[in-house]
Design a protein around this nucleic acid. Structure first.
Lengths: 194, 194
DNA sequence: TGTCAGACCGACCGGTCGGTCGGTAACGTC
DNA sequence: GACGTTACCGACCGACCGGTCGGTCTGACA
């Protein structure tokens, strides 16, 4: 029955799972095709290289997240509401693609060549957008200057990047709840008090 | 002149740097010995295997951090001051051994066998101590219940684990300053307001 | 001067890696 | 029913991997 599904997708699914569990380097092409149920020849018919497989695993995850971010920013809500929406959305998309997010975040720092430049740039842009949002909020008085915008940004992405390590899709806490909780802490820290 | 230094140390230094930059799997023994200036035979005279090298890179970092933590807890300061001291100390030791911390944190999730059980247990214990500290602070009313102790803990370790990725030893911000800033945000989030 | 141990050398080993390639079977099209 | 295309097979390749091992050099000590 699985034969009906495209080999491409089966390979991709197997690769995501293995890369997430063992890492890219520690996973051999043989392992991937073994689980996907095809052979070397079949694999290299669909993919140019093992590395191409890795890029495909990344997919448009970061690009999609960036689009979401731009959409939220375009709504021009107050800084607090904007930041909350950004965090909730980012947690949701990260949880929904937890394995891919894990591979993305773990391997991107290792592949230093120009082939990952696109993804790296997208990630940096996401980072910059959030930092600017916080900095502007602080400048306008909406957010407290309890810490630098850089530190707050590192904190937000620090949790979310590690989310795939502890998030359990079958657990009690749903992504929306996790996102809300995280937004609560961050906004509490940034709350202006007199 | 470098010949005066022990080969062991030179190998270890080279390994830390290469592992941090490229990852453990992507680094070959040949690369390490090439940089350290000795040969295969010399390397295997000092180390039992490539994996042994990795354990040595971990060293007693996590154990030392755990000892620091216990010492701080033993002082029985108020929750707020304890948490601040813990964060500042953890940031300081992570920054001081940034490369080792990076390798430790990145590779530990990949090596699933029993050889890393010791390190894994130590890390989990550190995690548990901090979470309990926060939970008790919330129970006693010292900390706000803005979010679950789990989430706050994930946030603290999330930033610190990723610190080696952006921390610059030659940068303006010193570890003590980073630690203080991080403690400020966390404590601001946990501050009880009426 | 003889001896011994530790440090180190470098050729070599079996195995695994990512990747190639000539071939074949199924199928839509005319 | 001939033909091109697409999907796939599996034997094979050279490079490189971690690790071994017989041997050499050197310095401390007797």
């Amino acid at each position: 029955m699985t034969g009906l599904t495209g080999s491409r997708e089966r390979v991709l699914d197997a690769a995501v799972d293995l890369f997430a569990r063992q890492g890219y380097d520690a996973t051999s092409v043989a392992q991937v095709i073994d689980r996907a149920g095809l052979t070397k020849g079949g694999f290299y018919h669909h993919f140019a290289s093992k590395e191409a497989l890795l890029y495909e695993v990344y997919g448009d995850l970061i690009t999609r997240q960036l689009e979401h971010l731009e959409a939220i920013l375009a709504r021009r809500l107050p800084p607090g509401e904007t930041l909350r929406a950004v965090i909730v959305d980012l947690v949701a998309s990260t949880a929904a693609s937890a394995q891919r997010a894990l591979v993305f975040w773990r391997e991107l720092n290792l592949l230093g060549d120009e082939s990952t430049a696109e993804y790296r740039a997208a990630r940096r842009r996401y980072h910059d957008r959030v930092r600017r949002l916080i900095r502007r909020g602080q400048a306008s008085g909406a957010f407290a200057r309890v810490a630098s915008a850089d530190m707050v940004t590192f904190m937000i992405f620090g949790v979310i990047n590690e989310l795939p390590l502890w998030y359990d899709p079958n657990g009690r806490k749903k992504p929306a709840q996790i996102g809300a909780e995280l937004a609560d802490i961050v906004l509490a820290a940034l709350e202006v008090r007199q």
